[in-house]
Design a protein around this nucleic acid. Structure first.
Lengths: 338, 338
DNA sequence: ACGGGCGATGTTACCGTTAACATCGGCGCT
DNA sequence: AGCGCCGATGTTAACGGTAACATCGCCCGT
């Protein structure tokens, strides 16, 4: 808006003067109305409305030593899985009057560290971190700050504080065993870069362990690591098919990759699952709609964010918590691609 | 983190005492290092590091009268188009040291109003709003506050302040004319609910005007309004096909809907585009990957957010702006579904 | 009639930082 | 040698609220 010759924003003092009372009475009328006489309260309310007074939460935060802000560090916003977690978090926190500050780390622990540092300077009341991989400096800063922290999306025996997640490794192993049980023996793997991404890393490990468990040796040529994006999934599928024309089933660490892989297979005239089977991970809306519908693993993505938000709100309100670590589990969803 | 018997967070004063100087010298050492003697500066730096001092941006914001926060109001976070805009915004602002506060309005002008109110209380330095549809109260609050505001995603002759967008209406008309030129005469429309969503509304209008321009009367039965989600697109396609088995082309106001529609058509054994043609809008990654590749309209989604962020940063830094209104345009991308 | 208590309101100080102005010593210039 | 200026640092007050304690009538019970 044009920087006109506007009046300065009205402050508590201005309202107080107009109402003929002290600042304290106004602040009470707004925050603890029952402590103020009805007549006074209404007079103040009228003036507040007339001058358009809005309390300054920055100043309030300074005295109360809490800002009402919660910071969320996510790898990126453009992934629908992550977006749903953030949406759940945002919704759950909004209910309790908290607001969400988001930072995108770009799948880098260093990036996360920078964002955590910035959030701490902002004096956020709590933080949500994606995953369990953090730099030493991040862990130290958080320990020193001593605020509620929820790590989301994975499990660990030593969480920083609270945690909401599920075992990517077990889930991936489950899917892999399913492929084996269905009779596939030439298994390929397409996954997101595992560096600084513990979910991707654990899915990869889950796949590897399951293969080992059924004595199916997989050398590196059966793995393709790539960006977490649909076209990258297609490109990875192309790579894998070129390397191993005999591949008969591919496990993809994310539905976005699996869909890319399916479409690449279709372009090559391969029938799914007869020529090549494909399994995904996440159960995006798209998975059930695909033709044929994609076998995948459902994770309660919105619920992860929602639960994390509720845990943060509980803790900040001093309410007792049931458990600081919540395993939200996963559900295998066999469909027609395997 | 456990609420242990931690020391209180170190303040400027503590650092000052340990360094044997005044608070002012410490704050200078941090913000205007050249004004402090090298020896003093280094001593302070050492102590800052040792005690883990982090400046309190809440307090700084109070004196400086600027918080370094920018608020973004979006309908929801789980749509990839929107997510990319937010990502662009976040990236552009991060470069200049601003942090992003996000709020989800749920495609409601009332919801937007509540979020704007909250952002103003937070004393954000600027705001990004999705679309050009706002309540009267929202417009008044923003006018009164007088901060930089960017509206994104559409065009209007009377922006609140700055704007980055493109004409949804013209773009939709362009696609519609393309369908007509390709010989299709039984055109259907699938779009997101137009209420409080001016992009959806304008796309719908663009389609309607283009049909009228070529004397192709379309009564309401040719329109299906629905949620902005892939399964909803499939369901809408089913509705449309049941209502009008003779429909030969469908324009979808978003790629997510178009993909849903394509998959529904495939499930019904309809060949695309021979039995039914489908056009989308947005050019998601998925569009080019589909089999057959989806005809759509590309909008520079990341660039909208990035540009909006840059405009906000410029304005807040007092840099002169080129133009307060930027039409980022769009590109028609004919592919194989039409 | 008087003391106690309570409801309504006011006063003071502080949250952590920075702008603005003040101070102080030394160095260069004439 | 004296003056002025400048670099380095300190002091004061303010940003806009709120906690904690103080004050002041008034009503009630005995």
């Amino acid at each position: 808006m044009a920087a006109a010759k506007r009046r300065p924003r009205p402050r508590l003092e201005e309202v107080a003067k107009l109402a003929g009372v002290s600042k304290m009475t106004v602040t009470r009328a707004l925050n603890e109305p029952h402590k103020v006489a009805a007549a006074t309260r209404e007079r103040i309310a009228r003036i507040v409305k007339r001058v358009g007074y809005t309390p300054d939460l920055t100043a309030r935060g300074l005295t109360l030593q809490r800002t009402g802000l919660v910071g969320a560090v996510v790898p990126l916003l453009t992934n629908s899985l992550i977006a749903e977690i953030v949406q759940g978090l945002s919704d759950a926190l909004a209910v309790h009057g908290y607001q969400l500050l988001v930072g995108a780390s770009g799948f880098s622990a260093r990036g996360e560290e920078a964002i955590v540092r910035a959030f701490l300077s902002r004096r956020v009341d709590a933080m949500y971190l994606t995953g369990i991989t953090h730099t030493k400096a991040t862990r130290e800063m958080l320990a020193r700050a001593g605020l509620p922290v929820v790590e989301g999306g994975n499990l660990t025996r030593r969480p920083l504080d609270m945690l909401v997640g599920y075992s990517s490794k077990d889930a991936a192993a489950l899917v892999t065993h399913h492929l084996f049980d269905r009779g596939y023996r030439h298994l390929g793997y397409i996954g997101a870069w595992p560096r600084d991404n513990d979910r991707a890393r654990d899915r990869r490990r889950g796949f590897a362990h399951a293969c080992a468990a059924v004595s199916l040796p997989r050398d590196d040529s059966w793995y393709v690591d790539t960006d977490l994006a649909l076209p990258a999934g297609a490109a990875a599928m192309a790579t894998l098919l070129d390397r191993h024309p005999d591949v008969d089933a591919v496990f993809c660490s994310a539905d976005a990759l699996a869909v890319g892989a399916m479409l690449e297979a279709q372009r090559r005239g391969l029938a799914i699952p007869d020529d090549v089977a494909i399994a995904g991970f996440d159960d995006l809306d798209l998975a059930a709609q695909m033709v044929p519908p994609l076998t995948t693993l459902r994770v309660p993505r919105y619920a992860i964010g929602e639960r994390a938000g509720a845990m943060i709100a509980d803790r900040l309100a001093g309410r007792p918590m049931e458990a600081p670590v919540v395993d939200v589990g996963y559900t295998f969803v066999p469909r027609a691609t395997t």
